[in-house]
Amino acid sequence: MSEFFLMGGHGAYVWSAYGLTLAVVIINVWLARAKLRAAPQRARELATQAEAPRKQPTVRRLQ
């Protein structure tokens, strides 16, 4: 079994490559899910940002 992990002396290279790749896949899945979960909130923020300048009257209304 330990022979399998040693990989004929190349264990550090093989396992770090596979480890990083696994991490990249997991991080990407997590990032995509988090972005989707946060999207409605982000849409509301963007909508209020877009509306905000319009709420400021630029010309004073005549009495």
């Binding site: 995509a32 972005k35 989707l36 946060a38 999207a39 409605p40 982000r42 849409a43 509301r44 963007l46 909508a47």
Partner: peptide, 11 residues
């Protein structure tokens, strides 16, 4: 990611 982008853009 595209779904999230759609929700953000078409909120």
């Amino acid at each position: 990611r595209l779904q999230a982008e759609i929700v953000e853009r078409e909120g």
